[in-house]
Simulated assay, not measured.
Amino acid sequence: MTEFTTSADGTRIAYSVTGSGPALVLVDGAMCYREFGPCKSLAETLADRYTVYYYDRRGRGESGNTLPYSPEREFEDLAAVIDAAGGDAFVLGFSSGGGLVLRAAAHGVPMRKLASYEAPFIGEVRVKGQPVDAIAELNKRLDAGRPDKAVDFFMVDMVGGPAFMPLMMRLMRPVFAQLKAVAFTLPYDTEIMTGFRVPVDELSRIRVPALVMVGGKAKPNMVAAAQGVADAVPGATHRLLPGQTHQVKDEAIAPELVEFFR
């Protein structure tokens, strides 16, 4: 069942709840939402230990999309979900959702403890070896009415996927249709990631216990990103999950969360 909370700017944010126990809020990464991404499955895995809240970030699923956008509005969205969860919650973010959680904590959004998995502070975006303005490149494609090309740019030039990935994605028509529908939110995640560089001064303001995780199969730049975040957050716990990629398995991450969220 879908429930709603209202963010500070009046935007309705849709969320789901499952399980029982201490409150845990899950935050998705780029182009993911409740029905398309890792949070629903993990929520079901953890439902025997936590009351798990997972939500549609603004512009996705059943949530609103009040403009103009800024990362601060998403910090407020997360705060509204935490408030709906009783105001005292553990929080986990995946990928750019991890960046969102970290930055929100630095801006004072109340959390009991936080965890991030592979927040992609992996350095500036480059095309053919030259740095590019990722937000401008995404918006150029979106303004031209080509959300498919924005997805391609994200998958290949930003994420570092193989050149044949766009063709493979188009063969999975229902999935690609879902990606195109939320492609306009890609600049949002890009803004949250602060040029994909670790915002050291900002993260140094975090005052809650933090768990920073990375997969054992991560690329060197992602390993360095996790280390950079762990170094920036005072007292952070750093964990490498053996054998895991960016699409971490529930059975690999759940024990780490249960151990840390006590």
Rank of each mutant, 00 (worst) to 15 (best):
M155K: 09
Y69H: 15
G216M: 07
E256R: 06
S7L: 08
G215P: 04
G29H: 07
C32V: 10
V132P: 07
N221G: 05
E3A: 15
Y15Q: 07
D250Q: 06
F154H: 05
A30V: 15
A119H: 04
L186T: 01
V132E: 11
M222A: 14
G235I: 11
A236R: 10
T5Q: 03
Y53K: 01
E3I: 03
R12L: 13
E251W: 04
R12D: 14
P38A: 01
D231K: 15
F94S: 14
A236L: 12
G228A: 11
M31K: 02
L186S: 04
S70M: 07
G98Y: 04
Y53T: 01
L211D: 02
F184P: 06
V258R: 13
Y55Q: 03
P131T: 08
P38S: 00
V156N: 04
P162G: 07
M165T: 12
D143W: 02
V159D: 11
F261P: 00
R34D: 11
S41M: 13
A254F: 02
C39R: 05
E202Y: 00
K113S: 07
V200W: 06
I135M: 06
M168G: 14
K249Y: 07
A163C: 01
G145M: 07
T11V: 13
G19I: 06
M222V: 14
K128M: 12
V109C: 03
M165L: 15
R239T: 10
R170S: 13
S95Q: 12
L26E: 03
A134F: 04
Q247I: 12
G123W: 09
A150T: 02
T51K: 15
T11Q: 14
S204F: 03
P110I: 01
G21D: 10
E35S: 15
M193K: 02
G145A: 08
A80H: 02
D231H: 12
K217W: 08
R146I: 04
M169P: 03
F94Q: 13
G21E: 08
E62K: 13
L78Q: 00
G235T: 11
V52R: 02
T18M: 12
A226Y: 01
E62W: 06
M155V: 13
F196K: 11
Y33R: 12
F121E: 10
G235Q: 13
A150M: 00
R207E: 14
